[in-house]
């Protein structure tokens, strides 16, 4: 595939003869490395170091512990619901914004960004205010024996809210840059709406879509603030992995806390690796 796709290398351009002063790039790279070491590499190393300080036995025990296992399960459930929902929403919103003109388009774009601009705590709080016992719908929900706040549905709702911009944000500029002509061409050739979506629109944005999903998933699994407000921190019931880490830490179970934290750190590393792989793929395609 790559061999077929690689276009002939552009002719070598003449380099500029004058070189900038040699120490500037060295200094800049040095500063960047120092900064990264202090704020990224050392903490990342510390997570794994602390997690494994008392040996593999303790590490594995901390992860196998039922409450931890339950937290992992809940985190996966929340992500498994939030990511597909936001995938569908993101595609729909991006398609509408990039390919059609309608009133209130800029308002919609601003609204999509709302979860980014609002503090996660506020994101959680709005659900407490709506569905909580003292909230608008609280009494009615209680009357019908539906639990949302301090239960799994609340956690899923909060996760969906904080992650909904990712896919849409990734797709909108991509679709706008690609324009409407390919879609127009497809319609002129007789394609209906579904054929348009599956045969033209989605294949054209598949790498951007995957990129958005990866970011969305990372955030869905790592979200702390909004989920913390609606969860109620009931062990083995409404704790996601990030919340579980906090509880363990507050109980001075450092090795266990870091063991669970290392799982999240691993997720981040896997996400980064996937993200770079998608970036390489995207570049080779264009």
């Amino acid at each position: 595939m790559a061999a077929v796709l690689s276009s002939p290398a552009p002719a070598a351009r003449p380099r500029r003869a004058s070189r900038p002063i040699a120490w500037i790039p060295v200094a800049l790279v040095g500063v960047a490395l120092l900064y990264l070491t202090a704020f990224l590499f050392i903490p990342l190393f510390a997570v794994f170091f602390e997690a494994l300080k008392k040996g593999w036995g303790v590490y594995l025990a901390a992860i196998r512990e039922p409450d931890a296992w339950e937290a992992i399960r809940l985190t996966l459930i929340a992500a498994a619901i939030a990511v597909p929902l936001n995938l569908v929403f993101g595609i729909a919103a991006a398609w509408a914004i990039a390919k059609f003109d309608f009133r209130g388009k800029s308002a919609l774009i601003t609204l999509i960004d709302l979860p980014f601009s609002v503090s996660p705590v506020v994101s959680g709080l709005i659900y407490v205010l709506i569905f909580g016992l003292q909230g608008w719908l609280g009494p009615w929900l209680q009357g019908h024996d539906v639990k949302i706040i301090f239960a799994v549905p609340g956690i899923v709702l909060a996760t969906v809210f904080v992650t909904f911009p990712f896919v849409a944000r990734e797709l909108i500029p991509l679709m706008q840059a690609q324009g409407r002509e390919e879609e127009e061409a497809a319609v002129l050739l007789g394609a209906n709406g579904w054929q348009l979506l599956w045969r033209v629109t989605l294949p054209n944005v598949k790498w951007g879509l995957l990129y958005g999903v990866i970011l969305c998933n990372a955030r869905a699994m790592g979200e702390f603030g909004a989920v913390s407000v609606v969860s109620g921190h009931i062990r083995g019931m409404t704790n996601t992995l990030p919340l579980h880490v906090e509880i363990l830490y507050n109980e001075y179970q450092f090795a266990a806390a870091f063991a669970c934290a290392s799982l999240l750190a691993l997720l981040a590393l896997v996400t980064l690796a996937l993200k770079s792989w998608v970036e390489v793929k995207t570049r080779s395609k264009t």
């Binding site: 002509e181 390919e182 127009e184 061409a185 497809a186 319609v187 002129l188 007789g190 394609a191 209906n192 045969r199 033209v200 294949p203 054209n204 395609k285």
Partner: peptide
């Protein structure tokens, strides 16, 4: 509908399906 008109259309910038 556009789909039913049976019109052949050629765009200035070709509009070929880039992934096909």
């Amino acid at each position: 509908r556009v789909q039913d008109r049976g019109v052949g259309f050629v765009f200035q910038h070709y509009a070929l399906f880039r992934h096909m």
